[in-house]
Design a protein around this nucleic acid. Structure first.
Lengths: 330, 330
DNA sequence: CTGAAAGCGCTTACAG
DNA sequence: CTGAAAGCGCTTACAG
């Protein structure tokens, strides 16, 4: 075992309260006492126990970060932003994957609550609704990434997703495409998904019909993007452009085109979303909607810190800008 | 605040010990008592406090994971393996980045220790030596990724890095290359780095001279790989093949070649290391040394769990196989 | 400037 | 099968 406050107090010949004071650098301490205590501290290698402190202060100096999947290149950037901002505040963060599964999310939230996290940042599944507030400790703030939630104790950091969709569709339309499909997005959220809504609105604004069969949900990973695209293009060969839910799906879509003997962008244009690292290095380089993922994470952590500092204040959603990055795939 | 053991006990009309028993599913409890207590628990929404428990059991059910940088696509795969294996054991994990900086690593280790983590998995910087054991709590196990450490309380999960280097160099040599440089790797570890040692040995085995100026360290990121390669190829145009420390550096090297008007692999072959996701999608697709990163993480967590279960047992290093994946860049 | 008492929410022996 | 006491390592009022 490691040394305790009492050990130090005994060694320095003072009360534990005095040791606590110098360890936390608080209260007035005579210089001689301080030095004696400091000596005892370093001699014993004393390290304060945050768990003991947490029991009385009800603050653990930890937060939880629940992501879809750290293996999706979008998330490490976000996580890095959160982690850097957390470290600057001397907060440690539990990182958890949900795979977009509600039950798993709820269990994770439960577990984090039992561990006494001070707050949570979550990129929620599309099934997540009122459960969110219920699953967590009632008095712990939550920051939600990219999902509107109007509820006390919850703040949101949003991306201008529908604007991103509009930028993508406008661009494809300007290139002369009239048969533009959308691949990807949670199957459970086909109707309410912001990216899909933006896509529909943008199509309409160009006088293009919205064909619901051309909105093809799939899991946001490469393999599913590939399969979904193969099916889609096989069934509707007239499609000449694909707007993908994210870059992973876009890469899958490009693979699908290659499988089907279609050259991208000549025979089929593909636009992605996120601008993940390496999006500029794949073949062909992805035209995609960029969002500053690191900054998104950083702001989410900043917001959570604000909520921690001002528990009763209400915070407006934060909005992250997007931009279209034109490369080779469209 | 959320309900406590005492609240439940009061409500159910039993002692807190009895509540503790049913909450932890231990000891013999009469069925009627159990039901009464269960009812009180769900009515009050009681959730046990892991921090209070930790104070007495000295186990927090948390571990720390210290990585170089979650933004390097190698690490999310490893992290996912660790996280999945941890979740299966109901352990939560603090994820931290070190950026290969020893001071930061030590601070992080310190912080994790104060939080009372049960153990740590670390992918250490090359400066990290004896400090590792000293920085952590003396009785907490540590699993080190890919660095030999012979020391009680520390286990290692290794990749066969030098074999990977040999595979790469053998392949390049078989293709007729005789001027093979190595780019990347921690500047501080130029001499002892396994990958570099394997490279030197392999060169020698083919009767090729080892030119120390052609071993060019740089930070393991794309931009540095690019710059280092530009310098190298400008100064020694006779180089026709590059063995990169990792795939990020390899991608940077390819960009450098393009900048210099060299076509890969025709004018300069490039072999990477890791086989990160998307390594098969970049242009040209990377020939690289693959290691199962997810499995690496999973085994690291398994090993840590074993150490937790058997504190006095000594564990042999675990070795991860590597294989050369031949694609287009070499 | 310093200390003694109480308590955070649990579990661990030990009794009954 | 159930309970009362002590204690994990700290901090929070409250005294002096």
């Amino acid at each position: 075992m490691t040394a305790t406050l009492r050990d130090v107090a005994l060694k320095a010949g003072v009360s534990i309260k005095t040791v606590s004071r110098v360890a936390n650098n608080q209260g007035e301490i005579s210089e001689t006492t301080r030095q004696r205590v400091q000596a005892a501290i370093s001699e014993l290698g004393y390290r304060p126990s945050k768990v003991a402190r947490a029991l009385v202060t009800q603050r653990t100096d930890t937060i939880g970060l629940i992501l879809g999947n750290i293996t999706n290149p979008f998330f490490p950037e976000v996580a890095r932003g959160v982690l850097d901002a957390a470290e600057a505040r001397d907060l440690n963060v539990f990182v958890c994957n949900s795979d977009g599964d509600l039950q798993r999310e709820l269990r994770t939230l439960q577990s984090l609550t039992e561990h006494g996290v001070d707050g949570v940042i979550i990129s929620p599944s599309y099934e997540m609704e009122a459960d969110l507030r219920a699953g967590a400790s009632p008095d712990r703030p939550i920051v939600v990434i990219n999902r509107p939630f109007d509820c006390p104790g919850i703040s949101t950091v949003m991306m201008r997703s529908s604007e991103g969709s509009r930028l993508a569709v406008d661009y494809l339309s300007a290139k002369g495409h009239t048969a533009i499909a959308m691949v990807g997005g949670p199957p459970s959220a086909a109707r309410k998904l912001q990216r899909a809504q933006g896509y529909r609105t943008a199509l309409a604004s160009h006088g293009l019909p919205v064909v619901e069969e051309w909105v093809r949900p799939c899991l946001p990973v490469r393999g599913h993007g590939r399969e979904a695209t193969v099916e889609l293009l096989t069934r509707w060969p007239q499609i000449t452009a694909i707007f993908a839910y994210n870059d992973l799906v876009a890469i899958g879509a490009i693979e699908a085109c290659q499988t089907l003997g279609r050259v991208v962008p000549r025979d089929c244009a593909v636009v992605g979303f996120d601008d993940i690292p390496l999006a500029d290095s794949v073949c062909p380089a992805l035209t995609t909607v960029r969002v500053d993922k690191y900054e998104l994470g950083r702001r989410a952590m900043d917001r959570l810190a604000q909520m921690l500092a001002s528990p009763h204040e209400t915070f407006q959603p934060l909005w992250m800008d997007v931009e279209l990055v034109i490369r080779q795939s469209a």
